[in-house]
């Protein structure tokens, strides 16, 4: 094709601002069981690219327990320990202690759990691990419901959202649990929220978490096309709009222990615009949208 057969610019980046390097090495493989457009699988791919091969992943029951593949297959090229729902942080603490005993402190522990295993079922284990300042990175990929078991509401589900257990939308009396405030109260080694729709921010935060020590917690928003009732090709864009509308702010705990925003949208959009992109918010009323908008601003 005449139009196209020229050598590339040779630059290993795709936006005009990106100057970080992305490794070509993949620690997550094709053929995993995630639905098309899954935000959690894309997030895992890049987290592992940053953490590198010297990582052990510990995960409870969650989407990823399925995504990783049934025995005898695995999507990860690093060791992965499956645990029961409530004990990911506790099991990860055990692995950490075992590695410490073997003087393998350099190996990273990545505890990778969904919102159910973090906001609801695993919370006591996280609290314990955080209290002991266990040396691990805990990443909660939040798709805002129990997607894997059939889209049941969790305490991470935003109010107004349809799930199979909240067919009329989650009651506005209940708001999404403030997980960052809970973890912050444990004085963690690092604390941030991120999403892969903002690659610069995402890479910077995972790199920081990798360099820090102690209990490090990252809250990732990961789009779920089937649970959010969106088309798979729009998963990334909807995640981006969550940030642009202020529904999911990108934040980080600074050195003084205060949570501050790492990204401020240049032209913020309204909550209404964000909600309109998803089928799960179809039944939300104008008043409820306004309440939500006021909660943000």
């Amino acid at each position: 094709m005449t139009n196209n057969n020229r050598p590339a610019t040779g630059k290993n980046h795709f936006t005009d601002d990106t100057n970080w390097q992305i490794t070509n090495a993949e620690l997550m493989e094709s053929g995993h069981m995630a639905c098309p457009g899954c935000g959690a699988s894309l997030s895992m791919r890049h987290v592992l690219k940053i953490l590198g091969p010297e990582t052990i992943v510990v995960m409870p029951a969650c989407c990823w327990a399925i995504i990783a593949g049934g025995q005898p297959t695995t999507a990860l090229s690093v060791p992965l320990l499956h645990t029961p729902f409530a004990v990911a942080a506790a099991a990860a603490s055990g692995v950490r202690q075992a590695l410490t005993a073997q003087k393998k402190e350099h190996i990273q522990i990545l505890t990778w759990a969904g919102d159910g295993g973090t906001f609801d079922i695993g919370l006591q284990g996280i609290s314990g691990a955080a209290e002991r300042h266990e040396d691990m990175i805990y990443i909660c990929y939040d798709n805002e419901a129990y997607m894997n078991t059939g889209i049941q509401q969790s305490s991470a589900t935003p109010h107004g959202a349809w799930t199979t257990t909240t067919p009329g939308g989650k009651d506005f009396k209940y708001s999404k649990k403030d997980i960052l405030a809970i973890i912050k109260a444990h004085n963690p080694g690092y604390l941030a929220s991120a999403t892969i729709a903002y690659p610069d921010d995402f890479y910077a935060k995972i790199e920081k978490a990798k360099a820090a020590r102690g209990f490090r917690f990252i809250h990732l928003l990961a789009a779920c096309p089937s649970g959010w009732k969106i088309d798979s090709q729009n998963a990334l864009e909807v995640t981006r709009l969550a940030v642009e509308s202020g529904v999911f702010p990108l934040v980080e705990m600074n050195n003084e222990g205060a949570i501050e925003k790492t990204y401020e949208p240049e032209n913020p959009i309204s909550v209404k615009e964000y909600l309109a992109t998803q089928g799960r918010f179809k039944k939300i009323t104008a008043e409820e949208t306004e309440i939500w908008q006021n909660e943000i601003s």
Binding site: H32, A68, G69, G70, P72, T74
Partner: peptide, 10 residues
């Protein structure tokens, strides 16, 4: 598990 999921023709 010690086989890659790449065997699954997704």
């Amino acid at each position: 598990s010690n086989t890659s999921t790449a065997v699954n023709m997704t």
